[in-house]
Simulated scan of single mutants.
Amino acid sequence: MTRQSEGSGLFPAWVHDNLAVPETLGFTAWVRVWTELGVRCASPETHEKLIRHYDEPHRAYHNRNHLAECLQVRRLVNATCQAPAEVDLALWFHDAIYDPLRSDNELRSAQWLDEVARASGLGDETRRRLYDLVMVTRHDSAPQSLEEAVLVDTDLAILGASFERFEEYDQQVRREYLHVPMPVYRRKRRQILEGFLMRERIYTTAPYFDAFEQPARANLARAIDRLD
């Protein structure tokens, strides 16, 4: 088995391919997801602000390329759920706020989405679901709905990427935490990766399980061995 075949074929074609990013993250894509939620006037100012956040210089992994990968994986895997537009909008915001020095990034991202959703006229129940969708990306509890499962599986798809993309991702995460001394980082990183590996299933939904489970376990085991 070659290294390339160890990972999902959904990722390698996009690696370093920034041509796909403008289409995926452009204003047309932004308008489309809001239109599917019944909002006719998507805010260009919010779109621009959101992209600026993903372009912050301290982001090595949690940047616009990660967002683009998530949105493209979501489209290509196309796992069935009842509210796909809600999943897609939550993906746009799931790392809207990202500061490696803080532990409330998901909360602040969910709050920002709730503010935008309220201003856009979305109802209370829709806003509650959107809030919960962003919060589930803390990965500290099991998804409570099919939509949450699809979003979590999409966010974790990077674990089942090709050998090359996973190695790049692993290095990018380290760059975001250069302020953490290496011994501490190795211990904490191992705890996180082992937590995923020890799960009965990394991916809840069948399409993501079929596409990513086996390569994710191989990638995680290799990364944990390297941390020893």
Rank of each mutant, 00 (worst) to 15 (best):
L133W: 05
T35E: 15
A68P: 02
Y61R: 05
D114L: 03
V73T: 06
R74Y: 04
F166G: 04
R138I: 04
K49V: 11
P181A: 11
A20V: 08
E164F: 08
L227I: 04
E6R: 10
F11K: 01
F27A: 09
N65V: 14
K49A: 15
C81L: 10
N63P: 01
E147T: 01
V136F: 04
N105V: 02
R40V: 10
I97R: 12
E125Y: 09
E23S: 13
F212A: 09
Y54W: 11
F209Q: 12
W92L: 05
R175Q: 14
R222D: 03
V152R: 13
M198N: 13
G7I: 02
V33L: 07
A211V: 02
Y98H: 13
L37T: 04
L146T: 13
F196W: 02
A68D: 02
A161Q: 00
L146C: 13
T154V: 08
V77E: 01
H139S: 05
L71M: 10
E36C: 10
D153A: 08
R64P: 00
T28K: 15
T35R: 15
Y131S: 09
R75D: 11
A117L: 07
T80C: 11
R52Q: 14
L50C: 09
L101G: 02
S162C: 03
T204R: 14
L71N: 00
V184E: 14
R128Y: 04
E56T: 12
Y54V: 03
A42G: 08
N219T: 10
V31I: 11
Q172F: 05
T28R: 15
A149T: 02
M1L: 13
A221Y: 13
D132P: 01
A90L: 12
A117M: 05
